[in-house]
Simulated scan of single mutants.
Amino acid sequence: MTTPISISPGQLPATIRGFLAAHAARDTETALRAFAPTAMVADQGQTFRGTDEILVFLREAGAEFSYTTELIGAQRVDDARWVSSNRLEGDFPGGVAELAYRFTLDGDLIAELIIAP
């Protein structure tokens, strides 16, 4: 098993940085372009496969709440796997959450994203 290495958030691949910025801005069309056609996203016990389902996820996840997102850390697992640590603060239950976004890249596109506490 590969041990993740802490890096500065600016060292995340451009695809991941672009996705995170677009997702935080709720720019679903730009965020969607970061994904491979057969990509998978897992969040809160649900799995979304392919860009049609991922678009639904991007439009609906957290849409009922107002919140801010701050990138607070990053790790490189290997050449294809990266983790971003994100702090969300808003009017959702609990008000604050720290989530790990675990990315697997296929070339310059996101093949898999798993979001978990």
Rank of each mutant, 00 (worst) to 15 (best):
R26N: 14
L12P: 04
T28H: 07
E60H: 14
F57N: 07
Q75T: 02
I5A: 10
R33V: 04
R33L: 07
F57W: 15
G62C: 13
S8G: 09
A63D: 15
L20Q: 00
T47I: 02
A24C: 08
E53C: 12
D43C: 14
A21P: 02
G18K: 01
A31H: 05
G45H: 03
A34H: 04
L12M: 09
Q75Y: 02
T15Q: 03
P37Q: 06
L58G: 02
P37L: 02
R17S: 11
T38L: 09
T69G: 11
Q11C: 07
A24W: 10
T47C: 03
H23K: 12
G10F: 06
S66W: 14
T15Y: 05
G62R: 04
R59W: 06
R17W: 07
L55S: 11
D27V: 09
P37R: 01
I16K: 00
A25N: 12
S66H: 15
P37W: 01
R76H: 09
A63G: 13
Q75G: 02
L71A: 08
F35V: 07
L58I: 13
R33W: 04
E53I: 12
P9V: 00
R26M: 13
I7V: 11
S8M: 05
A63S: 15
A34G: 05
T47Q: 10
G10H: 08
L55V: 03
G18R: 08
L71H: 12
L58Y: 05
Q75K: 05
E53T: 11
V56W: 13
R59D: 03
A36E: 03
A25F: 09
E53W: 05
G45N: 03
Y67G: 12
A63I: 15
I7Y: 10
A61P: 10
L55C: 06
F65Y: 15
